[in-house]
Simulated scan of single mutants.
Amino acid sequence: MRRTSIVLATAVAALGMATSMASAAPVSNDGPPFPYKDCLAATKEKGESPSQSTWHCDQLVKKGWVKPAN
């Protein structure tokens, strides 16, 4: 359980970093909810498997931090 919490916190931090880097673009998203595809990209960049990435992003959708997938 602790490992899951650490990985989820890492995913949220990575998502925040990805968003702050993307804020230099002309159209920026200043805060939650973040796009689902950005969440997947951030978690995969951290080395998670596709199923782990999907699970974490789905959890963040439930909490309102990520927009649902289309």
Rank of each mutant, 00 (worst) to 15 (best):
M1T: 05
M1L: 05
R2S: 10
R3G: 03
T4G: 08
T4P: 00
T4I: 09
S5V: 03
I6T: 12
I6P: 00
I6K: 11
I6W: 09
I6E: 15
V7A: 11
V7K: 11
L8P: 01
L8G: 03
L8Y: 10
A9Q: 15
A9V: 08
T10W: 09
T10V: 08
V12S: 07
V12M: 12
V12D: 05
V12A: 14
A13T: 12
A13W: 11
L15C: 11
G16W: 04
G16D: 10
G16F: 04
G16H: 07
G16C: 10
M17A: 10
M17T: 08
M17S: 03
M17P: 00
A18I: 02
T19V: 09
T19N: 15
S20G: 06
A22W: 05
A22R: 13
S23R: 15
S23C: 13
A24I: 14
A25S: 09
P26S: 13
P26I: 12
P26L: 08
V27D: 14
V27W: 10
V27E: 14
S28M: 08
S28Y: 05
S28I: 00
S28R: 15
N29M: 09
N29C: 08
D30A: 12
D30L: 12
G31V: 03
P32S: 12
P32D: 02
P32K: 09
P32E: 13
F34L: 14
F34M: 14
F34I: 14
P35G: 01
P35N: 03
P35Y: 02
Y36N: 02
Y36T: 03
K37T: 15
D38R: 10
D38M: 13
D38N: 08
D38K: 07
D38F: 06
C39T: 01
C39S: 04
L40R: 08
L40C: 06
T43M: 09
K46H: 01
K46C: 07
K46P: 00
K46Q: 11
G47V: 06
G47P: 06
G47N: 07
E48R: 07
E48V: 01
S49P: 00
P50K: 06
S51C: 00
S51E: 14
Q52I: 01
S53V: 03
T54H: 10
T54A: 05
T54F: 05
T54L: 13
T54W: 04
W55V: 03
W55E: 09
W55M: 13
W55A: 14
W55H: 06
H56Q: 09
H56C: 04
H56G: 02
D58W: 02
D58Q: 11
Q59I: 06
Q59K: 11
L60V: 03
L60A: 01
K62T: 06
K63T: 12
K63F: 07
G64A: 07
G64E: 00
G64F: 03
W65Y: 15
W65P: 00
W65M: 12
W65G: 00
V66E: 01
V66M: 04
A69R: 13
A69W: 05
